[in-house]
Simulated assay, not measured.
Amino acid sequence: MENVSSVTSDGSVADVHAERWQELLARLDADAPDIAEGTAAKLLATIPGYELVDAGPIRESSIRNTALIIRVINAGTEPKAEDLPEALRLADERIAQNVPLGSVLHGFRMSLGEILEHLVQLGPEYNIDPGRMLRWSTLMWAVNDAFSTRATRVYRDHEVATAIADSVRRSEWIGKAVSEGSELSELLWGAAMYDVPADTPLRALAATSPDHAKAETQIQKWTQRAGVRVLASVQPSVIVGIVIGEPKRNVDGPGFAVGLGRAEVLSKLADSYKDASLVLKAADNLKLNEVQRAQDLSWKLAIHASPRVTEILAQKYVKPLRESGEFAHEIVESLRAYVDNQMNIPAAARSIPVHVNTLRYRLRRFEELTGCYLEDTSTVIEVSWVLEVFGREL
């Protein structure tokens, strides 16, 4: 091309074919609505996830993207994620419109592609050097990277906040479901929300764990073995849950004490939770790190409810046994075998194992120390009580 020169006002000579990139950027800004129109039509036709979004908001975001590119080109440096408030605004808008993150990132890349294509088409008209156009292209894809980082962070924070809010709502509902006086309408709302049957018998669950951070995971593993589903809430001092389905017996528990209440429909689940709490307290006192029901513990529930009885029985049995020294261990072992085998001495002797006469001697020694006789049913009940509370300490 022939160089054409002109004389400036100060007498110097200027090349009329010099780059006019500022004019090009002004033209790009003026063409932003037209670019936005094409971008919106293409995006809605090709990218899933925008079914609930009108073309208007997409055109508006495309125009903002054009302004962003002009700003970055003028700055001449690659932006950081923190430098892009546009990403925050767009992500917030699309979250409200239920557009998934992948679709948002795809849409932004498409928008940048349309802007870049327009720049390339206008380049020759404004005598833009190919090297400058390449630098602009590099800047634009740096914008894409920074935008993706910022938008992803916004979506992640939103997901975390949503999960926390849902967890709080779920915990509150579970607490109300096992409490007396809850409104039926609210119970039914939660039942629909969390897929809990309203008319099928459920069981309340109460549990404690030394590691609350892992407790819910351990409970969920137990539910898989037991063939049930549990909606659980980990509270500071107790784990509260609703068991959906009838748990299988004789499966490994979660590794800590769990109390299950009676089977009740949702509107009466508070009664089930009373049972579960009582069972849990009794299991804790007895150091039973298993899943327990009221019928499993039976009379042992009274141990937690009657601490004064435990004190009386401790004076009656534990004190004289401890005074017998090391022989106390052998006596306790024999007593446990005797009780566990329904007072059948031969069977009890085999279970330890010791000779039958040895077992009889130990039992007789117990009677001498305590002044009580094992033929008496009351003594057997009291000994069973003492063994549950103190058996591991004797």
Rank of each mutant, 00 (worst) to 15 (best):
G11V: 06
L286S: 11
S179R: 11
T162P: 00
V104D: 10
S61V: 13
S378C: 03
G371I: 10
G123M: 05
A14Y: 09
E183H: 08
A283Q: 10
A163T: 13
R225I: 05
V104T: 12
K319S: 02
N74S: 08
P33Y: 06
L369Q: 06
N285S: 04
I242Q: 04
V386G: 00
L387Y: 01
Y373E: 12
S12M: 04
A232Y: 03
M343E: 01
R262Q: 12
N285D: 04
M193R: 15
L288Q: 10
S12I: 02
T39W: 06
A96I: 01
F390Q: 03
L188F: 11
S306D: 13
W141D: 11
A75C: 00
N65K: 00
G56Q: 14
V120W: 05
V160E: 10
D129S: 13
D34Q: 13
I164M: 09
L269S: 12
L286N: 04
G325W: 04
N289E: 12
L112H: 04
M343Y: 08
M1F: 06
W222V: 07
K176R: 15
N289M: 06
S233D: 15
G49V: 09
L288K: 14
W136Q: 13
Q224K: 15
L297F: 00
V389D: 02
A257F: 01
D34K: 09
Q97D: 11
G49E: 07
F147Y: 15
V99H: 05
R156T: 07
L84Q: 03
M193A: 15
H158C: 00
R365M: 12
M343A: 10
K274M: 07
A151P: 05
S267I: 07
L387G: 00
E382N: 14
A348V: 03
A40F: 05
S267K: 14
R262E: 11
F390G: 01
K176M: 15
D199Y: 01
A232K: 07
A276F: 05
I345Y: 00
E393F: 11
K221M: 09
E37P: 00
I352E: 06
E125N: 08
V386E: 02
P79V: 10
I47K: 04
S306P: 00
G245E: 04
L335T: 03
Q342H: 10
V318N: 00
I381M: 06
L387A: 03
A177Y: 12
T377Y: 05
L101I: 10
K214R: 14
Q342I: 01
A26P: 01
L266G: 10
S272L: 08
I345K: 08
L269Y: 10
F108V: 10
L116M: 11
I219H: 02
I115T: 13
E216P: 06
R362P: 09
N285W: 01
V154E: 12
A270V: 09
T358E: 02
E323Q: 13
T358W: 03
V356S: 02
K268I: 01
S148V: 11
W21V: 13
S137K: 14
E326C: 01
S62E: 11
P353R: 09
A283P: 02
L43Q: 13
F327R: 14
G245H: 03
D271K: 07
D34E: 13
D157Q: 06
F147V: 09
P346W: 06
E19R: 09
L278G: 14
E180L: 11
W385K: 04
I312H: 08
I219P: 01
R203E: 06
T208N: 08
D166H: 11
S5E: 12
